[in-house]
Each structure stands twice: as structure tokens, then as C-alpha cells.
Amino acid sequence: MTHWLLLLGAAVVMLAFLVVFLMLRLRLREQEDERLRQEVQRLRDDLGALCSGAVGVSERVARIEQKLQRVSERQEQMEFSTVESQPYDQAVELARKGATAEELVAHCGLTKGEADLVVMMHRMDVG
């Protein structure tokens, strides 16, 4: 009988150690779970901040692209008006030096009406 009591006592002690061991393991798992929950929350916060930042960058890029488009259009208009006005600038200069309408048509590519008008307006500057 004492033999059985000894075995029962040993089993109870082993069971107590097993319960303590399992409780410690459970506590460690709970701590690891909490650490992982905090890490997931931190990652969610970081992802939210990145998404917000990306939206801001996207809006900024869109505004810059719009400005660039407007600048390009203005540059094209300026280039077109410069190219378009070059024959007239040259014709005005020639008219001031006394060129005839026929000479303006020949050298500047103006129509007869344009050349007559330039001569009338700018020949008066001479005298």
C-alpha cells in the first residue's frame, strides 16, 4: 500500500510540475500573442500613413502635371506668335527703310493688302 501511495504522490508531484510548466508556456504564448497584436497594429498604422502620403503625392503630381501642361501650352503659343510675327517685323523694318509694297510681298511673303497696310502705317514713321 505504501508503494501505491508513493507512486500516487510521485504522480501528483509530476502532475503539479506539468500544470506549472503548461501554465508558464500559456503565459509565454499570451505574451507573444500580445506582442504580435501590437506589431500588427503598428504595421496597420504605418500602412495607413503610407496610403495617406501616397494620396497626397498623387494629388501633388496631378497639380504639377496640370501646371506643366499650361506652361507647355503657353510656350507653344509664344513660339507660334514669334514665328508668325517674324515676317511682319521684317516687313515693318523694311517699310521704315523705304521699301515698297511689292518688295515686301517678294521678301516677306505678305499678301498685297498686308504689304500696302504695312507701307502706309510705317512709311509715315520715316517722314
Rank of each mutant, 00 (worst) to 15 (best):
residue 66 Q to A: 14
residue 79 E to Q: 14
residue 68 L to D: 05
residue 6 L to Q: 12
residue 110 L to R: 01
residue 127 G to C: 01
residue 122 H to R: 01
residue 77 Q to Y: 07
residue 36 L to Y: 08
residue 10 A to M: 10
residue 7 L to M: 05
residue 72 S to N: 09
residue 3 H to M: 13
residue 8 L to S: 11
residue 85 S to F: 09
residue 10 A to G: 12
residue 67 K to H: 07
residue 99 A to L: 05
residue 77 Q to G: 06
residue 22 L to V: 12
residue 112 K to D: 09
residue 120 M to C: 05
residue 6 L to F: 09
residue 115 A to E: 01
residue 51 C to H: 15
residue 93 E to C: 11
residue 107 H to M: 14
residue 121 M to F: 05
residue 36 L to S: 01
residue 124 M to D: 10
residue 14 M to R: 04
residue 56 G to F: 06
residue 79 E to Y: 00
residue 64 I to E: 14
residue 98 G to C: 02
residue 112 K to I: 07
residue 110 L to A: 02
residue 75 Q to T: 09
residue 108 C to A: 04
residue 32 E to V: 08
residue 9 G to H: 00
residue 7 L to C: 01
residue 87 P to G: 05
residue 31 Q to T: 11
residue 47 L to S: 04
residue 56 G to Y: 00
residue 71 V to E: 04
residue 92 V to I: 15
residue 35 R to Q: 11
residue 104 L to E: 01
residue 9 G to S: 08
residue 70 R to V: 09
residue 66 Q to R: 15
residue 87 P to Q: 02
residue 7 L to Q: 06
residue 93 E to T: 13
residue 109 G to E: 04
residue 11 A to T: 03
residue 58 S to A: 10
residue 123 R to D: 07
residue 22 L to K: 12
residue 84 E to R: 15
residue 72 S to T: 11
residue 87 P to I: 01
residue 11 A to I: 04
residue 87 P to E: 02
residue 110 L to H: 02
residue 59 E to G: 15
residue 57 V to T: 14
residue 99 A to F: 01
residue 56 G to L: 10
residue 28 L to A: 15
residue 79 E to I: 09
residue 69 Q to W: 11
residue 23 M to V: 13
residue 11 A to D: 03
residue 112 K to C: 00
residue 27 R to W: 13
residue 77 Q to N: 08
residue 25 R to Y: 03
residue 54 A to E: 13
residue 74 R to K: 13
residue 78 M to P: 01
residue 125 D to Q: 08
residue 83 V to K: 15
residue 39 E to P: 03
residue 114 E to T: 05
residue 2 T to W: 00
residue 59 E to V: 05
residue 41 Q to V: 06
residue 104 L to H: 04
residue 29 R to F: 05
residue 92 V to Y: 04
residue 33 D to M: 14
residue 57 V to I: 14
residue 112 K to P: 02
residue 40 V to S: 02
residue 105 V to T: 04
residue 88 Y to S: 02
residue 21 F to V: 10
residue 106 A to E: 13
residue 2 T to L: 12
residue 96 R to V: 08
residue 81 S to Y: 12
residue 78 M to F: 15
residue 36 L to T: 08
residue 102 E to S: 07
residue 14 M to V: 13
residue 3 H to W: 10
residue 9 G to L: 13
residue 31 Q to G: 08
residue 44 R to E: 09
residue 97 K to I: 03
residue 14 M to T: 12
residue 85 S to G: 00
residue 100 T to L: 01
residue 120 M to E: 15
residue 88 Y to F: 14
residue 54 A to N: 14
residue 56 G to N: 03
residue 50 L to D: 02
residue 69 Q to V: 05
residue 54 A to V: 09
residue 52 S to T: 11
residue 25 R to K: 14
residue 22 L to P: 02
residue 41 Q to S: 02
residue 58 S to E: 08
